[in-house]
Simulated assay, not measured.
Amino acid sequence: MLSHPAHLIAQGFGSGLSRIMPGTSGTLLAWLSFHVLTTRWPHLFTPLNWAIIIAVGFLVGIWACHKTGKDLGIADHGSMVWDEIIAFWAVLLLLTPAGFSTQLWAFLWFRFFDMVKPAPIRYFDRHIKGGFGVMWDDIVAAFYTLLVFAVWRSL
């Protein structure tokens, strides 16, 4: 992880090295970091700044995940969780303000869509390679998560 900055980022600052469910560990890091940063420095971590961080993080993630996947010899290695972090930050940003219960449901729905990979997530996961492919399927899982909340709130 420490051999290259791309590995540090792609592997979620070590959260992706968890032996048990690294994607879930990365998503938990995203949730914790979003909460801590937004609560501790609300004047700095505003919705606009989070949107910029997420957009830049997506672009950095394309590079970091491509480099790390290439170096590890597996394009979408399980230890790469930056895609979960960026996608779940987007979910939290678009649901905020939200209480713990809503955030917990968002976490569970996001993990469900990321693990089950319903269409077209599975298609993107299998056919779009490189760093963009790694990042993109989680963005679609985030979209599905937000769609669940949009439907739920409209009922």
Rank of each mutant, 00 (worst) to 15 (best):
M1K: 13
L2W: 13
S3K: 15
H4A: 04
H4M: 06
H7A: 15
H7Q: 14
L8D: 07
F13W: 13
F13R: 04
G14C: 09
S15N: 07
R19A: 15
P22K: 06
G23F: 07
T24P: 08
T24H: 07
G26T: 06
T27K: 12
T27R: 11
L28W: 02
L29I: 10
L29S: 09
L29C: 11
A30T: 09
W31K: 01
L32Q: 01
L32T: 10
S33F: 12
V36D: 04
L37M: 13
T38A: 13
T39G: 05
T39W: 11
R40E: 04
P42W: 04
L44R: 00
L44N: 01
T46C: 08
P47T: 04
P47H: 07
P47Y: 06
N49Y: 07
W50Y: 00
A51L: 11
A51N: 01
I53H: 00
I54P: 01
I54F: 00
G57N: 05
F58T: 03
L59A: 15
L59S: 12
G61Q: 01
G61V: 02
I62G: 05
W63M: 11
W63C: 09
A64T: 09
A64D: 03
T68C: 03
K70E: 13
K70N: 11
L72N: 00
G73T: 03
I74N: 14
D76G: 13
H77F: 05
G78Y: 04
G78A: 14
S79Q: 13
S79D: 06
S79V: 12
M80T: 03
V81P: 02
W82C: 10
D83W: 00
I85G: 04
I85H: 03
I85N: 04
I85Q: 00
I86Q: 03
I86H: 05
A87H: 08
F88S: 08
W89P: 11
W89N: 09
A90E: 00
V91P: 10
V91M: 03
L93R: 07
L94C: 15
L94R: 08
T96I: 02
A98C: 10
G99C: 07
T102R: 14
T102N: 09
F107D: 10
F107P: 08
W109E: 05
F110A: 08
F110S: 09
F113Y: 13
V116T: 10
P120M: 02
P120I: 00
I121R: 00
R122T: 02
D125C: 03
R126K: 15
R126E: 13
I128R: 00
I128G: 01
F132R: 01
V134K: 01
V134I: 15
V134F: 04
V134A: 07
M135W: 06
D137K: 07
I139S: 12
F143V: 15
Y144E: 05
L147Q: 04
V148P: 00
V148Q: 03
V148S: 06
V148K: 06
W152E: 09
W152M: 11
S154M: 14
S154G: 10
S154Q: 13
L155N: 07
L155E: 05
